[in-house]
Amino acid sequence: MHRYLVMYLMMEQSGRGSGGVLLVAAGFLYGVLHALGPGHGKFVVTTWLATGREQARAGWC
């Protein structure tokens, strides 16, 4: 994963257009995988899903 992040960063620095988009996407994917790992991540994801559903229901009513 580290190699890909470095590669995307180097693509962005060299002026290639897709490097920044790939860097943000890879960072987001890494964050999701990190949140699903052991520890507090599962609590954060569960809380987000639980409150997100309530907010979605409140928006429709």
Score class of each variant (00 low, 15 high):
M1E: 05
M1W: 11
M1I: 09
M1V: 11
H2D: 09
H2V: 09
H2I: 09
H2N: 11
H2R: 10
H2C: 08
R3N: 06
R3I: 05
R3W: 11
Y4G: 04
L5M: 11
V6A: 08
M7S: 07
M7T: 08
M7C: 02
M7G: 06
Y8E: 00
Y8C: 03
L9N: 06
M10D: 01
M10G: 03
M10R: 14
M10V: 12
M11C: 07
M11D: 00
E12M: 06
E12F: 02
E12L: 05
E12R: 13
Q13R: 14
Q13D: 05
Q13Y: 01
Q13L: 15
Q13T: 02
S14Q: 14
S14F: 13
S14G: 10
S14I: 13
S14R: 15
S14D: 12
G15M: 07
G15T: 04
G15I: 01
R16Y: 14
R16T: 04
G17N: 11
G17L: 15
S18A: 14
S18C: 13
S18I: 13
G19V: 00
G19E: 00
G20S: 02
G20Y: 00
G20C: 02
V21C: 07
V21P: 04
L22M: 14
L22I: 00
L23A: 05
V24I: 09
V24Q: 08
V24W: 12
V24C: 04
V24S: 12
V24G: 08
A25Q: 07
A25N: 09
A25L: 13
A25R: 11
G27Q: 02
F28L: 15
L29T: 12
Y30V: 02
Y30H: 07
Y30D: 10
G31D: 05
G31P: 01
V32Q: 05
V32L: 12
L33C: 06
L33S: 00
L33D: 08
H34T: 03
H34R: 07
H34P: 00
A35K: 02
A35C: 02
A35V: 05
G37Y: 03
G39P: 01
G39Q: 04
H40D: 07
H40M: 12
H40K: 03
G41E: 06
K42V: 14
K42E: 07
K42A: 13
F43S: 11
F43A: 11
F43Q: 10
F43H: 13
F43T: 09
F43W: 12
V44Y: 14
V45S: 10
V45M: 14
T46P: 03
T46S: 14
T46M: 15
T47P: 05
T47A: 15
W48M: 13
W48L: 14
W48T: 10
L49R: 13
L49K: 08
L49C: 05
L49T: 04
L49Y: 05
A50W: 12
A50M: 08
A50L: 12
G52W: 02
G52M: 03
G52I: 00
G52C: 02
R53G: 12
R53L: 09
R53E: 09
E54I: 03
Q55Y: 05
Q55S: 09
A56H: 10
A56T: 06
R57T: 08
R57F: 09
R57V: 13
C61G: 15
C61S: 14
C61M: 15
C61W: 15
